[in-house]
Amino acid sequence: MPKVGAIVIDGMVHANVENPGLTIRYTEDGSDPDVNSKVYEGPIPFKGQVKLRAFSISENGGGISGIK
């Protein structure tokens, strides 16, 4: 499972993952993303830290990417 690629542009976090069909979930409180975390649906405001993780349909998670 690939890690999520992420970058901050103009104060917004832009994320993507190379495999179609994966769901990107994220947290902003320093905790690791899990199946109950918010779903990334488009750029989000960068508030100091974000952790992102890709999940398959069967809810298997990949590696965690972070931005500080």
Rank of each mutant, 00 (worst) to 15 (best):
P2A: 08
P2D: 10
K3F: 03
V4L: 08
V4M: 07
V4I: 09
V4K: 06
I9V: 15
D10G: 00
D10K: 15
G11R: 11
G11H: 12
M12Y: 10
M12T: 01
V13M: 00
N16F: 15
V17Q: 15
G21S: 12
G21I: 11
G21E: 09
L22M: 13
L22Y: 08
L22E: 09
I24K: 02
E28K: 09
G30Q: 06
S31M: 03
D32Y: 07
P33Y: 03
V35T: 15
N36I: 00
S37A: 14
K38L: 10
V39Q: 11
V39E: 12
Y40Q: 01
E41M: 11
P43E: 07
I44W: 04
I44N: 05
P45I: 06
G48M: 06
G48Y: 12
G48H: 00
Q49T: 08
V50L: 04
K51I: 04
K51Q: 12
K51F: 12
K51W: 10
L52W: 06
L52V: 05
A54S: 13
S56W: 02
S58E: 14
N60P: 01
N60Q: 13
G61M: 08
G63N: 12
G63C: 00
I64G: 02
I67S: 00
I67H: 01
K68L: 10
K68M: 08
